[in-house]
Simulated assay, not measured.
Amino acid sequence: MMTKKLVVVTGGSGFIAVHIILQLLQQGFAVRTTVRSLQKTALIKEMLTNGGVTDFSALSFAEADLTHDAHWAEVLRGATYAIHVASPTPNRVFKDENEMIQPAVEGVLRVLKAARDAGVKRVVLTSAYGAVFAGHHHRTTPYTEADWSDVTVKKVHAYQKSKTLAERAAWQFIREHGNGLELAAVNPVGVMGPVLSSDYSHSNVQVRQLLEGQIKAVPHVDSGYVDVRDVASLHILAMTAPQAAGERFLATTGETLSMLDVATILREAFPQFAAKLPTKTIPNVVIKATALVKPELKMIASIVGEYAGTSNEKAVRMLDWHPRSAKTAIVATAQSMLDLGIVADRG
């Protein structure tokens, strides 16, 4: 019997990571996933079970923290591939932006060093749209993988800086110290799709808040959206396709939706929530003024009214990747929240 190729996935309890693990197991890979605490293993198994996994024999867990050197050498030992998903999530209130930037940069370098030293063939880095679009003004053409965020612009949020500087550091490490280690990066826009437990990603909070009537009016923020199942499949294509080495890929459907568009999609798909869903936008000046006294709004204030068009031409052309529509992703998010009882069905 052939030995299964081992893939290390960092941050296994995360929304994107757990869908990657799900697809890797379904495709016959062995997976070792890292968690900061082994107490997370039950949650990961619950999510994978909800996703349809019944056999956990090819899955193992390892405790490792991106802020410490300990354990990373053992974690990567014997792996053919690594998918580095774990990264600080947007902390909307912080004293120093380095609280977000430093762990992201140092974390990616720890993983890359350990992967190189363990003889891993390729690392796929989960970067972000935040490493592509931030700091650009008066944009009128879709963002592509050729674009990088300009972190010298004062209003760029620390989360976008952390994603940009971490990815930049990764590419620099490969150039200068990679010793043959391959790297590919995936840069997702807003990630929607089925949540697999009541412990779900920050990117899905918006849908729950909309359905529960917590948002009476929305900011004028345009965004791309993509289904987490397609983000996972793009990571695996970037991991296995020979032509993906040295490339970055925008994970986007190529559509651009406003938050009102999202509310409209939810209203049409779930008419029982129609009365709860917003129909008005908040003026940009109000958002920007409020952010001066409410730091948690700074990230939103930095992107209101900004162009957000994206292209997925590269991933389609190079990797034959064909994502579901943004509408499908958004509806799947809401439906999974209803199915799991995260949002009470009003029907």
Rank of each mutant, 00 (worst) to 15 (best):
V231G: 02
L38M: 14
V191A: 03
R208G: 06
T310I: 12
G119N: 10
V108A: 10
N91I: 13
Q26A: 15
T252N: 02
V226Y: 05
L48H: 07
T256K: 11
S258D: 11
W171H: 12
T256R: 12
I330T: 02
M259L: 15
M2Y: 09
H84N: 14
D230Y: 14
S149E: 05
R92F: 15
V8Q: 12
R208Y: 11
R139Y: 11
V286A: 14
A158F: 00
I16H: 06
L109R: 04
I215W: 11
V207Y: 07
V31Y: 03
L181E: 08
S37F: 10
M259P: 07
A275Q: 15
A184S: 15
F270C: 01
R116E: 09
G347I: 02
V93N: 10
A308N: 11
T279F: 01
Q39R: 14
G135E: 07
D320F: 06
A274G: 00
A217R: 08
G180C: 03
V331G: 02
T310D: 02
T126P: 13
F94Y: 15
Q243G: 03
K314L: 10
D96K: 05
S201E: 04
H68M: 10
Q335P: 00
D117H: 10
E176W: 10
L181S: 12
A64D: 13
G305D: 06
N187G: 00
L25W: 06
L211V: 02
Q272E: 13
G28V: 00
L196W: 07
A217Y: 06
A315R: 09
L338S: 01
R32T: 03
E63L: 08
T54V: 13
T333R: 11
A326Q: 00
L297R: 06
L6A: 07
R317H: 09
D320P: 01
T140I: 09
T126E: 08
F29E: 06
K113S: 13
A263K: 03
G305E: 03
M259E: 11
A64L: 14
T141L: 07
E145K: 09
V231N: 01
I342K: 08
G305M: 01
G78N: 05
A344R: 02
F273N: 04
P271C: 01
R346N: 14
E306L: 15
F94S: 03
E46C: 00
D69H: 06
